[in-house]
């Protein structure tokens, strides 16, 4: 069974067809990449999966269950985590706190007990902090753990955002342009992490990316979009060579 199944998905803003009849499947453990020029509807697809937007037509199923119309905060409970194109961290909180928030759905503590900080709350906090420290070690963020994320360099913030997503222990990770704003070295590092995430942690990755070197490096399959429609799908080489894709990027 596919991990994520998207069928005939459409999203319209007034007359603009941001996403039009898009269908694809993401299989467990693969890195699936969406490419396409700006405004092709890639981020809109992410926002549809995260339920920030309501689809006008079509169906999104995760692990065989329909998630097209669930509440936005339930998406994380199902095991989907994401990053954002322009980094949406909690700027006034520390790296550690950001990562802990990533585990939000896994906490079982209740408000009255939190106010009293009962031993059971303490024990649960402790257990989750151990998980978060594992992520901090994995992404080598020890140096920054107590810094406010708002003060960190952009490259580090992208890693923290990745960390927050990993801390939630997702089955599917949505990465929205993981390399944007990073220099060559940082991009290289990012590609190693993405490989580690799939191979070591066994997490499936659905990614939007413009950097074709990174795409080639990590992707198992690629889907090209233009004007909200699928123009090509398959392995990296065939999609890149597809005449429609060349035309979309270079114009007529």
């Amino acid at each position: 069974m596919s991990l994520l199944a998207i069928d005939n998905l459409s999203l319209h803003f007034g007359g603009v067809r941001a996403v039009e009849d898009v269908s694809f499947r993401v299989e467990p453990q693969e890195v699936f990449t969406l490419i396409g020029p700006n405004g092709a509807g890639k981020t809109s697809i992410f926002n549809l999966i995260s339920r920030i937007y309501d689809a006008h037509a079509g169906r999104i199923a995760f692990e065989g269950r329909d998630i097209t119309a669930i509440a936005p905060h339930e998406v994380a409970q199902r095991g989907i985590a994401r990053t954002f194109q322009n980094v949406e961290l909690f700027e006034h909180a520390t790296v550690l706190e950001n990562l802990l928030l990533g585990r939000h759905v896994r906490f079982r503590t209740r408000l009255p007990f939190e106010l009293l900080f009962t031993p059971s709350v303490r024990a649960e906090e402790r257990a989750h902090r151990e998980k978060v420290e594992e992520v901090i070690d994995f992404l080598e963020l020890q140096h920054y753990r107590d810094s406010r994320t708002g003060n960190l360099p952009y490259g580090v913030r992208k890693v923290v955002e990745l960390g927050r997503a990993l801390a939630s222990g997702p089955k599917l990770l949505l990465l929205d342009e993981p390399s944007s704003g990073l220099n060559t070295e940082e991009t290289e590092e990012m590609s190693f992490w993405i490989e580690d995430i799939t191979q070591e942690l066994g997490i499936t990755v659905l990614m939007i990316e413009h950097d074709m070197a990174l795409v080639r490096e990590v992707s198992d399959r690629v889907l090209a979009l233009n004007y909200g429609r699928i123009i090509a799908a398959g392995d990296v080489e065939s999609v890149q060579a597809h005449p429609e894709v060349v035309r979309a990027y270079l114009g007529e």
Partner: peptide, 15 residues
Amino acid sequence: VALRDSAIAAQSFGV
């Protein structure tokens, strides 16, 4: 705090 700093990200992490 998450709600204050980025409601959208908070929501995406299950808040």
